[in-house]
Design a binder for these strands. Structure first.
Length: 601
DNA sequence: GGACCTT
């Protein structure tokens, strides 16, 4: 039998196979004393849902069948009609009570979704497909599997397919089209794409599917220690919550358990959740480090590691914690796990750091759609520090008038936590219902603020950068950069809170002498995005030409693969810690091995 | 300066 990816993973996970990366340590599963000298019994079957659907073929995944898996569906569009209604097979919603055997009740994560607002199916899927038609995508690395056009041509399994329909996803987004096949063959990935582009699903589907198909996982029985199979890290608590909620939907009735841990919330409750079982752990770094130190969590069985907003996770403040989690715990090394990094921007210094965590990875960049391209109108106004408040009030008054009764949602970014509080106070005092989110507020306050903003109760949210990344808040029509950030990448992330998933948005920035270092990168970015650049900004940009970081070489993209730029001066192979193109990890080897890629020829 | 454990 051919060595498949699933075998490689299972082998690595159970310790029966070396990791394949030069000299990587072999880590046998921990067996607690009271269980030694016994015949090991599987902790549980990995895929209880197969009880309903019949056994899933363990290794019959995309590409291994040797036939064109796309041929099951006639063409790229044929899935529209079939998935538009739920009348297909199974009936989905109706039959859940009966088929559960002894499992405890799993809350329906789709529950109150439809009650919130009445929107068209297309809209509720969060994706404007027309806006995605001609998004440029670039990949690099060896043996990149081709993208898929429909979910149907990927064999993710019945339960997951049902959840995809429940989410009303009819067609994969560009990042999903490319990421899912890459991920299903077990390759490491560094991907540039926005959160609103369907990133979470892109890495969750293969993780869930992989866990379900994994052979009965034999996990150690630690004393109150849990052994998740997948770890998803993100830089803020709210983003971790969001990823958790989304992942719960994808994992509904698959038997795959998802738990989130983050700071600011009582730890005991999170510990109880963990003890009830966890396959996929979503976490912020601080709380996870805490749990690791208390030995409540072991990363020994991790097969999948995903870092969301990876550029933030690897910058100065976070990097030590991430290294601690990834490199100084019992987590399998690169090659012994599958690692996926996602971010809207990937500066090359960060790519260099990130390559420590990866093995023979594929670099993927999806055009910046819905962000700094045509869907967001970007304006820059010269506003002195002392005039900012009255100027903001003018903007708010103006949009109050043209609205139809309901105030459109406006997200105002400021530099400091104190600044956020005082602006909120001032806005409220002037008749504008505002709230604020920042790191000095308690977690319940932060969550309340976000809910109140989303619901339109307080249609103005004053925020620090805690809200700059990844948060998916539908219907934000205006982002105001009351204080501009120092880094152009932060600007890109901030304005990305509007114009999400194909909808249009407006971004206004207040610029003054304090922002000179941003003049050039901002002018360049706006020009790239076909925005009107005011003359005064062009002038400032030419003055301080060599001031800012000038590393936006990706054109329409967030970044480009730094390995391409380095190809001449990198060290001879074998010496460094980085696997560039050829370096063999277990997966790279298996994948590139005899005959394996033939399905894609 | 902002984000990221606990008390």
């Amino acid at each position: 039998m051919r060595t498949s990816w699933a075998d490689a993973v299972d082998g690595a996970a159970s310790g029966s196979n070396s990791y394949g990366v030069g000299g990587a340590s072999h880590r046998p599963a921990y067996v607690p004393p009271h269980l030694r000298n016994r015949t090991p019994t599987p902790e549980r079957m990995a895929a209880p849902s197969t009880l309903n659907n019949g056994p899933l073929p363990v290794n019959d995944r995309l590409g291994n069948s040797g036939q064109n898996s796309g041929s099951r569906w006639a063409g790229p569009r044929s899935d529209y009609g079939k998935q538009g209604n739920n009348s297909g097979r199974g009936g989905g919603w109706g039959n859940r009570g009966g088929s559960w055997g002894g499992r405890e009740l799993e809350a329906n994560p789709f529950g109150n979704e439809d009650v919130e607002e009445i929107v068209s199916d297309q809209e509720s899927s969060g994706i404007n497909f027309d806006a995605y038609e001609d998004i440029p995508v670039e990949t690099s690395g060896v043996n990149v599997p081709p993208p898929v056009n429909t979910f149907a041509e990927i064999d993710l399994g019945e339960a997951l397919n049902l959840n995809i329909r429940r989410c009303k996803y009819v067609k994969p987004t560009p990042v999903q089209r490319y990421t899912i096949p890459i991920s299903l063959v077990g390759r490491d990935l560094m991907a540039c794409a926005q959160t609103g582009s369907g990133k979470t699903a892109a890495f969750c589907f293969p993780i869930i599917s992989g866990i379900m198909r994994g052979q009965a996982v034999q996990r150690p029985h630690g004393f109150r220690t849990v052994f998740p199979l997948a770890l998803i890290l993100s830089p803020t608590r709210e983003l971790s919550c969001q990823i958790h909620m989304e992942t719960k939907k994808f994992a509904y009735q698959t038997g795959v358990k998802v738990v989130v841990v983050y700071g600011g919330a009582p730890i005991n409750q999170q510990l109880r959740e963990l003890e009830r079982g966890v396959d996929i752990l979503v976490a912020t770094p601080g709380r996870l480090v805490d749990l690791l130190e208390r030995a409540k969590v072991s990363l020994q069985m991790i097969r999948y590691l995903a870092l969301d907003e990876a550029d933030r996770m690897l910058d100065m403040g976070f990097e030590p914690q991430i290294r601690k989690i990834v490199e100084q715990t019992d987590m399998p090394p690169p090659g012994g796990r599958q690692t996926m990094l996602f971010s809207a921007t990937f500066p090359r210094e960060i790519q260099r750091l990130a390559s420590d965590f990866l093995s023979n990875y594929i670099f993927l960049t999806v055009g910046r759609v819905g962000s700094s391209t045509d869907l967001i109108v970007q304006r820059v106004e010269f506003v002195q520090e002392t005039d900012k408040r009255s100027h903001l009030m003018d903007l708010l008054h103006a949009q109050k008038d043209n609205g139809s009764g309901r105030q459109p949602l406006t997200l105002v970014f400021v530099e400091t936590k104190k600044g956020a509080d005082s602006l909120e106070y001032w806005l409220c005092g002037n008749g504008f219902p505002a709230t604020t989110i920042h790191g000095d507020r308690t977690q319940p306050e932060r969550e309340l603020a976000l809910r109140s903003f989303k619901s339109g109760k307080t249609p103005i949210l004053v925020a620090t950068d805690v809200a700059a990344r990844g948060l998916d808040i539908p219907h934000v029509s205006h982002v105001v950069n009351f204080d501009l950030p120092n880094d152009i990448d932060d600007y890109v992330h901030r304005i990305g809170r509007t114009g999400r998933a194909g909808k249009t948005g407006l971004a206004t920035a207040f610029f003054n002498e304090n922002n000179m270092s941003l003049a050039k990168p901002l002018a360049d970015l706006m020009q790239e995005a076909n925005q009107e650049v005011p003359q005064w900004l062009t002038r400032y940009a030419s003055w301080g030409a060599y001031g800012g970081k000038n590393r936006r070489s990706g054109g329409r993209f967030g970044s480009r693969d730094f390995r391409k730029e380095n190809s001449f001066n990198r060290p001879a192979s074998g010496g460094g810690s980085m696997d560039y193109y050829g370096g063999g990890g277990a997966y790279g080897g298996a994948y590139a091995g005899a005959g394996a890629p033939s399905a894609w020829d």
